[in-house]
Each structure stands twice: as C-alpha cells, then as structure tokens.
Amino acid sequence: MLKRFTKYVTQSVAEMIGISVYVLADTFFISVYSGADGLAVLNLILPVYGLIYAIGAMIGIGSATRYAISRAKGENTEHYFVQSVTWSILVAVPFMLIGIFIPDKALALLGADAGLIGLGRNYVRIILIATPFFMSNYTFTAFARNDGAPSIAMIGSISGSIFNIIFDYIFMFPVGLGFSGAGLATAICPIVTMSVCTIHYRSSRNHVGFHWKKPSFRRFPAVS
C-alpha cells in the first residue's frame, strides 16, 4: 500500500512540476518577444487561468473521485466520465463567448490599458476559446489516474508541457506568430495530454464507461 501511495504521489508531483516548467517557459519566451508589456499581459490573465483550472479541477477530479468510490462499492459508474466532460464544456461556454466577442473588454476589466489590450487581444481570445480543453484535461488525467493508470496520466501531462515549451518557440519566432503563437501552443497543450490519456481508455485495462446521461443542474454538485 505504501509503495502504491508513493507511486501515485510521485507521479502527481511530476505532473505539477511539468506544468510549472511550461509556465516558466511561457514567461521567458513572452518576455523575450515583447518585454515588460508582454509580462504585464500574462500577469493580468493569470487570475483567469487560475479560475479556469480551479473549475476544471473541481469538476474533473471531483468526478473521478466519485467514480473511484462508486466503483469500489460496486455501483454503476458508466456515466461519470461523459458527465464530467459535458459539464466542463457547458461551464466553459461563457469563457468562450467572452473570448470570441469581447476579449478587449475582458482585458480592460482586468486592468489593461489601450497598449496592453492591443498586444494581448489575440492571446486572450485564443486562451478563452480553448477553455473546454483546459477544463476537460482534468477529467482525462484524473480518470486515468483513478483507473489504475497514473503513469499514463503523468506521461500525458509531461508530454503536453514539453509540446508547449517547444512550440512556444516555434510558433512565436520561426513561424512568426508572436504573442498569438504563445497562446496557440498553450491551447494545444491539453489536447496533447488528452490524446496520450486516450491510450489508456482504448486499452483492455480501462474500466471507465462512456455512457451518456442527460445533465441535470439539480445534480451538478455531485456531477453524476
């Protein structure tokens, strides 16, 4: 039991370190490209990142925890994964609409002046439109981890972080997308992680069900 516990904790910490490293890489490349103004935009958007990740973690990790408990009790768990992804997408809709229609106003509300809005508009738009991926990412990794595949969840998170670091540079400089390239690399990062986690869901070791169940606002706190 101790060995198994240590394995899970170590791999979870490795995932968190990977995320921290790509955030540092984002900061470095953005500072090289646009200096203090770029860092100012990044710092303004960080609270929004935090909110997106917090909601995604609440839904994904909470659902995966209930899945593990219900499965141990021998209850039906076929709907938990799809419900978690569904709610992640539904909750992400307001963020997407803000990104599509009013990214300027969102930046202004966060404290940006006209110069920072001009610099960070497309970056913020890309990040907000990609909110469903950021939120669903927690569902994919948490369910894989709780279904006996913590190594795949760790590899997925680290792979996404490595992709982000490499393509931050490629998109920003050789491709010439600048600040928008940093947003694009970050937006694709969770897609890479989820793709790796799909290896487990397609394997014979998978116990996670994918049955549809109509979402209910009344039962949303339980995500069931």
Rank of each mutant, 00 (worst) to 15 (best):
N43S: 14
A222I: 09
R71F: 05
V32H: 10
S224T: 08
G156F: 14
A72P: 01
G38L: 03
V9A: 15
K7R: 13
A187R: 08
V23A: 08
F101H: 10
G118S: 07
A114C: 00
S195T: 15
I117E: 01
T10F: 14
T198P: 03
R205N: 15
P103T: 07
I55T: 09
F167G: 05
V196M: 06
S224N: 13
G120N: 02
A144M: 11
L90E: 05
S203P: 12
G50C: 03
K3G: 15
H211D: 13
S12E: 04
V82H: 07
V175K: 11
I52C: 06
C197E: 13
R4C: 06
T27M: 05
Y201K: 09
F134M: 10
Y8E: 13
P132T: 13
F167Y: 13
I100S: 11
I59H: 02
T10K: 04
D168W: 05
G62L: 05
S34P: 00
L90N: 03
V41F: 04
P215Q: 01
F220H: 00
T131V: 13
S203W: 07
F210K: 12
V48T: 12
I52N: 05
Y138M: 12
A142T: 12
F171V: 05
L119Q: 06
C197G: 08
M96C: 14
A57F: 09
Q83W: 02
I19S: 02
K3H: 12
P103D: 08
G178S: 02
F210N: 09
G38Y: 04
L110G: 10
V23I: 13
A108E: 14
T186S: 15
L184Y: 04
G56E: 07
G209Q: 09
S151K: 14
T77V: 14
V208W: 08
K213R: 13
P215R: 00
Y123I: 02
N164D: 09
S157Y: 07
L184W: 05
K213E: 12
I100K: 08
Y33N: 08
I166A: 13
A142V: 12
T141K: 14
A64Q: 08
A112L: 03
T27G: 12
A14P: 00
Y169I: 04
F171P: 04
A36F: 01
P103Q: 04
F217S: 00
P47H: 02
I98K: 04
A68L: 06
M172C: 11
T77W: 04
F220M: 14
A14E: 01
C197K: 12
